[in-house]
Amino acid sequence: MQDEPRPDELIKAVADFLRDQIAPQISGHAAFKLRVGINALDLVTRQLTLSADSDAEELASLKTLLGKDGTLVDLNSDLAERIASGAVDLSTPGVKDHLWRTTLAKLAVDQPNYASYRREMEQK
């Protein structure tokens, strides 16, 4: 068992330092690169915080949908193949809901400020 603080806590501390202390001191292309870097750290923090739960939900949903066991990658590959072959489509019970939930979980990590995501969350 590794000791505390957790990775997400460490990365958040670094990102906050860069954002609050360093970013105001630099300009131009370096400032742009720094912003991209801070965005990357924020993304990692969100993934470390959110993905254990969302991955577990996705895995459970895939098992129910496909009626079999496997890893996330295997089951996603299987679902992808079934959609490609037409064996599964939007009229298959649970598919549309599954795709929406897994996609929203990705956006929550990747780009929670993306306008389409914000709109969908408002309407939920």
């Binding site: 990658v73 996603n76 590959s77 679902l79 992808a80 193949e81 959609i83 490609a84 489509d89 939007l90 795709l99 897994t102 996609t103």
Partner: peptide, 8 residues
């Protein structure tokens, strides 16, 4: 890398 939404 599997992407069910892209397949859709």
């Amino acid at each position: 890398w599997p992407r069910p939404v892209f397949e859709l």
